[in-house]
């Protein structure tokens, strides 16, 4: 029964809840950190927690770069974390083959969020000669999510490649439309 959830040639199911829930937990942690920083940037809190770098957090969070867009950068971060959490939750334990679109979306949300985080980490000392503890923590959280999220993306991409190689529609497979037949085949075999 559980075997049909494991991708061919894999030793485990990357879409199992044990694999996905820790990533969702990290995303919610990131959302909490970025949400707190957003509230500071929007003036809800007058001060920001900074145990190590003195005026660093204030300098970074009020910098020109943080206001380059219409909304403060932490707001975008918080929304990205929320998107990660939602994309991590949607779909069942076979979603690498029943819903490749959400898995690919999940990978696309987690990957670039990590890239932007690292860019912001590089900018802190180079442009402002300052560090911001919670900004670094948020970046760490987004980087921690990347590796654990990518195995599921790999399983989906391998599935899509198999579908295309066997002459079926890549488009239908991507949206999970060709999977009914695959499930029937599996149940016959089982």
């Amino acid at each position: 029964m559980a075997d049909e959830l494991i991708p061919p040639g894999w030793s485990y199911n990357p879409a199992s809840w044990a694999q996905r829930l820790p990533i969702v937990g990290l995303a919610l942690l990131g959302f909490a950190i970025a949400g707190y920083l957003s509230l500071y940037q929007m003036g809800v809190f007058a001060t920001v927690w900074e145990p190590f770098f003195g005026a660093g957090s204030r300098k970074i969070l009020n910098s020109g770069v943080s206001r380059i867009l219409p909304v403060p950068d932490a707001v975008l971060g918080a929304l990205s974390y929320l998107a990660d959490a939602v994309a991590g939750i949607i779909g069942g334990r076979a979603r690498w083959r029943t819903m490749p679109w959400i898995v690919v979306l999940f990978g696309l949300a987690v990957g670039p969020l990590g890239a932007v985080s690292i860019l912001l980490v590089v900018l802190q000392p180079v442009m402002f000669s300052a560090w911001c503890t919670l900004c670094l923590s948020s970046a760490l959280v987004s980087v921690l999510m990347i590796g654990p999220a990518m195995d599921e993306v790999l399983a989906s991409l391998q599935y899509l490649k198999r579908e295309r190689d066997s002459g079926r529609s890549l488009w239908r497979a991507f949206w999970g439309l060709s999977d009914k037949r695959a499930q029937q085949q599996v149940s016959h075999v089982g």
Partner: peptide
């Protein structure tokens, strides 16, 4: 540091 962390996962 980023790529060291990502490479901890076996798939990556």
């Amino acid at each position: 540091a980023t790529f060291a962390i990502i490479a901890i996962s076996e798939a990556t």
